[in-house]
Amino acid sequence: MKLALYFTFPYPDRETFRKFFDETLKFNFEYLELGIPTDHPYYDGPVIRKTHGKAKENYSEDMLEEIVKEANSRNIRVYTLVYYNHFVGREGEFLGKLKSMGFSGAIVPDLLTDYFSERNQLISKMDKFGMALIPFFTSSTPDSVIRDIAGKTNGWIYHGLQPSTGIKVPVSTDLIVSRIKELCPGREVIFGFGINSKDEIIDLKKSGADGIAIGSTLVPCMESMDLDCFRSKIRMLEEGVNGI
């Protein structure tokens, strides 16, 4: 089972982000997701939403590139999580920059809901730049759309378990996992949103999930600049992923 870690870059500030990033590198994980801060991260829950404001104030393209290159040098693939409303109309320039920084691809959470008619165009543009569009699906994504987008992309799939990040409403995890695996046979599917306990990770593993993505649960440790809290959370995630 794979582990993907999400951070809004550079929350809460550059110096603290660096410290936590260095700590992160001491652990084993496969994918790093870096959220590019935006004014309206409206599909995120309140925890991640709050990180965007501070991250935006401290944003630095040079430092972002440095972080991506460092992760790549350790065989960690780096993806950005960015709202399409952040770069619509300037896709070429934006994607070119991401590619040169070393990003492997992008997760675009508002593409299928707010820019549905532009989905194929964006996939083509990303292909041209050698960037993978990581399909972002939820329980509200219709079967035909999942099949269509999965057929036009090659990377792993990101599936949100909850209606928003860091939120917990009752969901049938087994059903969600079996549905997406049935619709996308053979594809690697990473599940995110609202995962914050070892038991949940173990249950997801038993259901057939290929990996988990974690974000909101790490934010309080970063907010309080508590490295011990951060370490113990990541250890807990590792234990869940390894089924200990």
Partner: peptide, 26 residues
């Protein structure tokens, strides 16, 4: 009907940026 719609349904969204009204549904 959700899995049979031609396009994805946009998720519910919080009105208050500070709080989660989705969480409140619990």
């Amino acid at each position: 009907i959700v899995p049979d719609l031609p396009e994805p349904l946009s998720p519910p969204r919080d009105h208050d940026p500070e709080n989660s009204s989705i969480n409140l549904l619990n």
